[in-house]
Amino acid sequence: MTQRVLILGGRGRIGSAVANDILTHTQAEITITGRSLSTQKAVNLALGDRVRFLVLNLEDVDKLRSAIAQSDLIIHCAGPFNYRDTQVLEICIDQGVNYLDVSDHRSYTQKALNLHSKALEAGITAVINTGIFPGISNSLVRQGVEQFDHPEKIHLSYLVSGSGGAGVTVMRTTFLGLQHSFKAWINGEWRLIQPYSDRENINFPPPYNHSNVYWFDMPETITLPHSFPTVKTVITKFGSIPDFYNHLTWIAAHIFPQWLMQQGYMIEFLAHVSHLMTDFTNIFSGIGVAVRAEVTGQKNGKNVVYYSTIGYENTATASGIGAGSIAKLLLEGKLKKPGVLPVELALSTDLFTQIMAERGIEIKENWHSY
């Protein structure tokens, strides 16, 4: 029988990228949802004959429940996730349907993880935080951690050119991440970090090379310390190209009054203005992404540093690959991990390297002693 995938919020650029990856690598049929028929025009898929559109508001619980019941896999792409509750995941657990999402906010991550026991009892696999970062980045960390006898420090750096090929929702998420200080695991304790602070110059793969990144609140900040208990420090930093976007974001985080940054209208204004700006600068900067995952620790009695990097020409497409590749594994029955799990606990390194190779993504690895 043909497998059926329901993508909530699939009309957006990341949701469409997830759908395209699934259509390319599986025979599944896909239903994409949106809040009105007018949004159907925004769906841009390479292979449309196996796709249908469903008008669905997540607040319509009965219709949502019916749509989930008719599906073999649910993919939640309807962000921003700091606004979302776990209703979709709870319905999946109740109906025994596997689930994954592209969530990227710690509040949602924590609420989802609280449902682990219920998902485990129901026997469903729910993988959260898939995409590029979080997502592929988490698996790069796991691959690195497994190289060590005693891993001690994780340093993740992300770099995006222009808009990254994403829409206003991703811009909105970026500015929402500047609203509050956040806790990070530093030297074995939780410390309060100011967003977009501690500028650092990181060596990424070409064509980016040395670029600047800043502290940014990501779900990995809370999941990685629990996934790898011996690690005493987890750092997550983000930067943009061109560099002047970093300066503008720093001003929003440090100069604008905090009360102003916590107003919905201000977030909307900044998101739309930024999107208009990047539509122009994308011509020169491109819309690619680079990730560097560095792990420090002990191996064979020596203190060493391992780091791996990946790059991709379209950030939104890379997010689609991160989620779509895991969707394929779930549909094929190759990934069965009952419970609610972040990517680094759900996906083995063997499967990760396999799906990256299938999609032509090269992982570059390096070692050095210190």
Rank of each mutant, 00 (worst) to 15 (best):
L56I: 09
A293S: 14
Y312F: 15
L120F: 10
I186A: 00
K232S: 15
N44L: 14
H272M: 11
L23K: 03
V291D: 07
T2M: 10
P206Q: 13
H105V: 01
S274L: 07
K183S: 10
T86I: 04
A316T: 03
N300Y: 12
Y108H: 08
F256C: 14
I355R: 09
V127M: 05
P342K: 01
A166K: 12
W185E: 04
I186V: 09
E59Q: 15
T281H: 12
S161Y: 00
A46M: 12
N138P: 11
H275R: 02
V127Y: 10
G339F: 03
L224T: 02
A78G: 11
G34L: 05
V88Y: 06
T317S: 12
I193N: 05
V141P: 09
K237N: 02
I321A: 02
V18D: 06
G301P: 04
I74F: 09
G12F: 02
V213D: 05
H247M: 10
R142N: 08
E358D: 14
V231G: 06
E189I: 11
V231C: 06
G10S: 08
K237P: 03
L64W: 02
Y83M: 06
D72G: 07
F256A: 15
G165C: 06
P242W: 04
V97G: 07
I186W: 10
T249F: 13
L56N: 03
G239V: 04
D149Y: 01
F204H: 08
S240C: 14
L260T: 11
E294M: 13
A316R: 07
A42M: 11
F182N: 00
H210S: 14
C92Q: 00
H25K: 05
G167M: 05
E344W: 01
D243I: 14
V295P: 13
G144S: 10
A252H: 00
L248W: 10
G286R: 01
A126M: 04
Q40C: 07
P257E: 08
H210T: 15
